[in-house]
Simulated assay, not measured.
Amino acid sequence: MRKAVVAGLVLALSTGVAQAQTAQDRPPAMPIKASKIILIGDSTTQVLSGWGGSFCATHVTSFAACVNLARGGRSTYSYRAEGSWGLALAEMKTPGFVKTYVLIQFGHNDQPGKPGRSTDLATEFPANLKRYVEEVRAAGAEPILLTPLTRRQFRQGRLDRDLDAWADAIRKVAAEMQVPLVDLNKRSADAVEALGPSLSNRFAQVAQAREVSAAALAGTTIANPAAPAAAPTPQNNAAVEPLGDAKLAFDYTHLGPVGADFFSKMVADELAVAVPKMRPLLVP
C-alpha cells in the first residue's frame, strides 16, 4: 500500500515538472495588434446611401475595426457644429489600437444652395479641412482626405462634373499639409463617364422611371418624376440631398447596393496605393 502511494506521488510530481517545463518552453503569446479605420463624411459615405457600409463589410480585414461615423446632409461646417466631430475625436482616442486612420470626405453639402450647410469655397471650406487634419493628428491618428464621390448627371452625353472645384480645393489642402489623398472624385467621375448615363443609373438606390430611362438613352439625365411630367427637368441636388438619412428614391447622388459595392472597391484600391502601410488591413 505504502509503495503504491509513493509511486503515485512520484508520478504526480514528475507530471507537474513536465507540465511546468512545457509551459516554460512555450513562446509567449503574441500581443493583438489591431488598427481602427474611422469614416467621416456625408450621405455618400454613410451606411445605406453611400460606399462606406460596403467598404467596412467587404474590404476591411479582421485586423482592423471599421467605424462609419458619416452622416447624411453634413458639410465641413455642420458636422462639427452639431457635435458629430466631438464623437469622432473620442473614437480616435479609444485605447488598445496600434494605429487609427481617419478617412474624411466632404464637398456635396458645402456647395451653395443648402442653408445651414454651405461653406465658402475659397475660405471656409479649406480652412475647415485643415482644422480637421490638425485635430486628427493631435489625437494621435492619421488623417486621409478623399475628394467627393461624383454625381452621375449628364448633359448631351457628357458628365456634369459639378464637384470639380471642391475636389481641387481638397487636393490643394492635401498637398499643403502632406496628407494622403484618395482622389475619389476623379476616379469615380472617369468611371461613370465611361459607362454613360444608362449603365451608371444602375448605381442608384431604386430603379428609374420610364422617362428617365428614355432621357438616359439620349445622353441626358432628368429628375425621376413621381407622376408623368409635362417636360423633363434637371435634378435639384439641394432637394434630393436632405439632412439625415437619404430618402429611398432614385437620384444621381446616392448609392444602392450595386453602387456601394462598385465604389467601395474603388476606395479600397486607391487607399492601398495612397497609404501602402494600410494594405494588410484591406481586402481587394
Rank of each mutant, 00 (worst) to 15 (best):
A7Y: 11
A7N: 09
L11R: 01
A12S: 14
A18F: 06
A20M: 08
D25S: 03
I32Q: 15
L39R: 00
V47A: 08
A70G: 14
G72C: 05
T76K: 04
T76F: 04
S78W: 04
Y79H: 10
R80I: 13
L87M: 06
L89K: 05
G96A: 04
G113A: 14
G113M: 13
G113P: 10
K114H: 06
R117E: 07
T123C: 10
A127P: 04
R131E: 15
R131M: 15
R131G: 09
R137T: 13
A139P: 05
G140M: 06
E142S: 14
E142C: 10
L145W: 11
F154M: 03
R155I: 07
L159F: 03
R161C: 03
A165K: 15
A169Y: 07
K172N: 08
A174D: 03
E176P: 08
A189Q: 05
A191L: 14
A194G: 07
L195K: 02
P197L: 07
A207E: 08
E211S: 09
A218P: 02
N224I: 01
A227L: 06
P232Y: 05
T233Y: 06
P234R: 08
N236G: 02
G244R: 07
G244A: 05
K247S: 08
F250M: 05
T253Y: 08
H254S: 04
V267Y: 01
V267P: 01
A272Q: 11
V273G: 00
V275N: 10
P276T: 12
R279S: 13
